[in-house]
Write a protein that binds this DNA or RNA. Structure first.
Lengths: 219, 219
DNA sequence: CAATTATTCAATTAATTACTTGAATAAGGA
DNA sequence: TCCTTATTCAAGTAATTAATTGAATAATTG
């Protein structure tokens, strides 16, 4: 029986799970799913992928056993299939962060996937703004800021960020926001700020969602 | 800097590690490397890949930070870059196994075999060896046996098993072990032995784990 | 120095994967 | 019943990846 291909099949099966982790978009979907159950549409929005494409990625994840789904009315909700998957993602993230930190052009301080992904909630931000604990910056183009913004926020379009760095102290936490969950302006702003030693996070979603949640708006 | 899509880069970097895990042959190489440092040639031999191909896989693994290497004379020795990698592999294995257990077509071939081949725990084995109740066979290549093995075990490389069948009586239980939890040598050996009417089981995990557990080793 | 050896490089081919597009389901509401 | 909506399917193209081959590097040995 020594000529068997059990071995080959076995590692092939392992690799199916590996393959599921081999694509940045799928990893992003998994990270969002780590926060809870989500519909296909939500996931498409947040990842910036086409719906059909998102659906296909999700099916791959399902076939490799990392997620499962339930249908509720018109929507299909996906979630991670077990805590093992969360742990697997954590390990993967740790290895990626630790190993790529030295080698790569992306400096260690901002290759922290989780921090970049875990934005500050709107309510928490509102409290902190009221207590004067954070500096909020609006990194959208000035026109959009003028049309309405989070109270107390200052306008620093991403392209001008470097000019305003000295205004932003290293003590107080900085929170950046932009157009919404699939806008990357705030991601890049946070990366830039961290590179210069500031403590920075993204705000949950973006201004449209802030306004839609009925929170105060300044014009 | 601000023109770059940081978010995209972030997950792209993250996926580099995922991609390294996306191929059965690379996973097999990693499993062997989990046992310790190995030369390219050794790895090629054990995995059945061409040397050039092995070398290329190893370079991919190195670029994703999972392994590193040192040159000693003519040879290049690769090893896992940290314990985090071992943990990552363990998580991957667990998730993959859980998935294999319920769903798949491979269930018919490999997994039902696996179920039939419930391994014997190391401690239990040790007791039985001491009481002379079992015959322990080491089915790894002779070189590996020579470098250290379970006390009292006899070396029967899988490829030679058929020649030694008559030595192995039908009365006493036979326990086979190999390199580790995903080395299939012992699986195949047990399958072969059972086919010939012997009572056979695998030992839990393999020799590296036995040694690591602080159990006695014979050289 | 020439020959040997282990490994890597470079170029080719075959296979797999990602994304897009437009159509098909399937559930719910008008 | 027909319309709308969320999701999936299927087909095509572009891009990436795996394996093979033969040549190129280095370190060692005779």
């Amino acid at each position: 029986m020594s000529g068997s291909n059990f071995k080959h099949d076995l590692f092939g099966q392992f690799a199916r799970v590996g393959k599921a982790l081999a694509n940045g978009n799928r990893l992003e979907l998994l990270e969002f799913l780590a926060q809870g159950e989500r519909s296909v549409e939500q996931l498409a929005l947040v990842s910036g992928l086409a719906v059909a494409n998102t659906s296909q990625h999700l099916q791959q994840l399902r076939q490799s056993g990392l997620v499962n789904c339930r249908k509720a009315g018109l929507q299909v909700f996906y979630k991670l299939s077990s805590d093992d998957v969360v742990e697997l993602l954590n390990k993967l993230r740790r290895v990626a962060e630790r190993e790529l930190a030295d080698v790569d052009r992306l400096v260690d301080t901002f290759l922290t996937v989780k921090d970049n992904l875990e934005p500050i909630a709107r309510k928490e931000l509102l409290e902190r703004v009221n207590d004067g604990l954070v500096t909020v910056i609006d990194v959208r183009p000035y026109e959009e800021f003028k049309a309405g913004h989070v109270p107390g926020a200052i306008s620093i379009p991403l392209s001008d960020l470097h000019k305003h760095l000295d205004k932003l102290g290293t003590e107080q936490e900085i929170v950046a926001y932009c157009r919404g969950p699939h806008c990357v302006l705030a991601f890049d702003a946070v990366a830039e700020l961290r590179k210069h030693g500031r403590t920075a996070r993204r705000m949950e979603d973006g201004f449209p969602e802030w306004k839609h949640a009925g929170l105060p708006v300044e014009e």
